[in-house]
Design a protein around this nucleic acid. Structure first.
Lengths: 129, 129
DNA sequence: CTGTATCCGCCCGGATACTG
DNA sequence: CAGTATCCGGGCGGATACAG
């Protein structure tokens, strides 16, 4: 089959490295909400309630926790401007830009996969009809 | 409950598309184990117990469920060869190759992030010393 | 070996109410 | 608006025992 190097064949060291690296990544940006929050922020939504509306399905409690977590990991900064209405803003840091490749890959794949699923369902319909 | 056509109705479609696409992706390959199992499989481990040893920390029950899920989503195929010891093998499908970019991006980022954390800790040590 | 079934504790996270 | 506190139910997932 792929013995003649058709697939990516890594040495055992690089293999565990892949497992470890992806594990590290998932530990920080894994979970249901982290990346979506980052996307919403990248779209220019900075306020708490804006984000909650934008990231559909998230509760205030969870959003609050996730934001703290993201701040701890250096992806965003929380700023408070005193005033008549106190303005709290969340803004992505430069470090969050390092996720660009991950985000792009995920977005591209998600788009592709959705189209693919539709095709599968159509075929299934035809086959069972 | 949002009655007003909350579907794609915004001027900037790309933004909501990103959220949807990444949401789709996370729905399928999100979670603690999926990608790690795929990596282990890509390393050539095909047997159940091999995978369980390779994907550190996963229990038999969870591994079983994840494998079913991955098979349902077309990432792998389960084959059973009858014999004195029945041989069960899990093999990645071509469709799993579409995840290459995602995996590479995640691996690269995880590696970068780990190095970055080390640097931060060093600096913190120096600052407090 | 390759799983499945059952029990069960724990924690995630929704709902609600409340504060500043 | 921007959260926090509390309650609490469900489910995720570990441990164990068991089946093919």
């Amino acid at each position: 089959m792929d013995q003649s190097g058709s697939k990516v064949k890594l040495g055992s060291k690089e293999c565990s490295a892949a497992l470890t690296a992806v594990g590290d990544a998932l530990y920080v940006i894994g979970g249901k909400w982290k990346l979506r929050i980052i996307i919403a922020l990248s779209e220019g939504f900075t306020r708490f309630n804006e984000l909650q509306r934008r990231v559909e399905g998230i509760s205030a409690r969870v959003l609050s926790n996730e934001l703290k977590d993201l701040e701890l990991n250096g992806f965003l900064v929380r700023t408070v401007q005193a005033g008549s209405p106190v303005v709290v803003e969340y803004k992505l840091t430069d470090y969050s830009d390092t996720l660009a490749d991950v985000l792009n890959a995920l977005r591209a794949w998600g788009t592709m996969h959705r189209a693919n699923i539709k095709t599968r369902m159509k075929e299934a319909t035809q086959a069972t009809s």
